[in-house]
């Protein structure tokens, strides 16, 4: 047929074909748009949107994570600093406490010592005093026992004399 067309042959140009193909093509295009092209390209657009949205949200999530990590790093650094400060303070406190405790103890020991010394000397005094009394009493008792046993008039007289003499001496000494 094409040879006849090119030669312009007897049965002429079938120009109905042009109309036929025009209509065919337009109908085909409309059908494809409705059944194939439309849904598929819509889905492709949707996918492209979703992918770009996902990329955006991933980017923001990454940024957030980075910020958090930085914050954590800062906090860690701060806490190190704080901890060393706390330790230092505790050390100083301990030192101070130690000094006060030691000085307190020394003071206390000193006073204890002083008190003990006083107590000891007083006790000694007391003991001496009581011993003196006891000795005097004892001597009186012994003396009375001896006297009661064999005391004649001479002896009594001599004893009284010596006694009086002793008294006089004692008064002199006072």
């Amino acid at each position: 047929m094409s040879s006849t067309f090119l030669l312009g042959a007897a049965n002429g140009v079938q120009w109905g074909d042009t109309i036929f193909y025009l209509v065919l093509f337009i109908v085909l295009m409309a059908l494809l748009k409705h059944f194939a092209w439309g849904p598929v390209s819509e889905m492709m657009d949707k996918r492209a949107d979703k992918i770009s949205g996902d990329l955006d949200s991933a980017e923001s999530a990454r940024k957030k994570a980075e910020d958090l990590a930085e914050q954590r790093q800062d906090a860690l650094k701060d806490s190190h600093f704080e901890a060393s400060k706390i330790i230092e303070r505790a050390k100083k406190n301990g030192e101070q406490q130690k000094a006060t405790i030691v000085s307190d103890a020394q003071e206390k020991a000193q006073t204890l010592k002083v008190n003990a010394k006083e107590d000891i000397s007083r006790e000694r005094q007391d003991a001496l005093d009581s011993v003196k009394n006891d000795v005097a009493e004892l001597s009186i008792e012994i003396a009375s026992k001896i006297i009661r046993k064999d005391l004649n008039a001479n002896d009594q007289k001599a004893l009284i004399d010596s006694y009086i003499e002793g008294l006089g001496k004692q008064n002199e000494a006072k």
């Binding site: 049965n11 002429g12 140009v13 079938q14 120009w15 109905g16 074909d17």
Partner: peptide, 9 residues
């Protein structure tokens, strides 16, 4: 009256 070439259509 329009000629259609069915061996083409």
């Amino acid at each position: 009256g329009i000629p259609f070439n069915l061996s083409n259509d």
